[in-house]
């Protein structure tokens, strides 16, 4: 079931200053529209990269949507994050075509190299690792995507190499 994805660890939000004023244009635009809850959450996530706890409060107060409704929707859809993410999100495809061509190996190699599990972020907030259902590049399976760039026909070693290279090139 979708909602079980949420455990207590994920709901803790780090105490970081969140500038709530950024939300004003979004609220202005969507306040009076029907069916505005998902666009509001999507907009907020675009602004902050995730949906901080404080944002729920402000959206609820100003748009008159109950907190429980908002939280229900935010945890239902795979798109919404309640935790800050790394600078780069590594999306490893686990669609059928990638699965039968050993996508598991890619995820495991990355997990081992970055020492994080699926869905987690590295301590330096550089990488977040995510499994996704299908990136639609089945002919290049197994595939991962970092930013807009798709890497295909991977092996575990190659994936790790790519990740290390990105980090190196940005540190220099």
């Amino acid at each position: 079931m979708r909602i079980t994805r949420l455990n207590s660890k994920q709901t803790e939000t780090k105490a970081e200053a969140v500038d709530l004023r950024l939300l004003d244009p979004l609220i202005e635009k969507n306040k009076a529209k029907k069916g505005n809850l998902i666009p509001l959450l999507q907009g907020a996530q675009d602004l902050y990269g995730y949906i901080p706890r404080e944002v729920f409060g402000k959206l609820s107060d100003e748009c008159g949507i109950s907190l429980s409704d908002m939280f229900g929707v935010a945890t239902f859809y795979a798109q919404f994050r309640l935790q800050p993410v790394g600078k780069h999100i590594i999306k490893v495809c686990h669609g059928t075509a990638c699965h039968v061509q050993n996508a598991k190996e890619i995820s495991e190699a990355i997990e081992e190299s970055l020492r994080i599990k699926d869905g987690e972020t590295t301590e330096d907030r550089f990488y977040t690792l995510e499994s996704v259902a299908c990136l639609g590049c089945c002919s290049l399976a197994p595939v991962m995507m970092i930013g807009d760039q798709t890497y295909g026909k991977l092996t575990g070693n190659e994936a790790v190499k790519i990740i290390k290279n990105i980090k190196l090139s940005e540190n220099n």
């Binding site: 809850l37 998902i38 666009p39 999507q42 929707v73 239902f76 859809y77 795979a78």
Partner: peptide, 24 residues
């Protein structure tokens, strides 16, 4: 309307709920 990532929203009544801003 951009879907927010839920396979069940391919089902037509769930899809409608999602457009209306609800859980799909």
């Amino acid at each position: 309307k951009e879907g927010a990532g839920a396979f069940v929203c391919g089902e037509e009544t769930a899809l409608i709920a999602s457009i209306e801003g609800e859980r799909g």
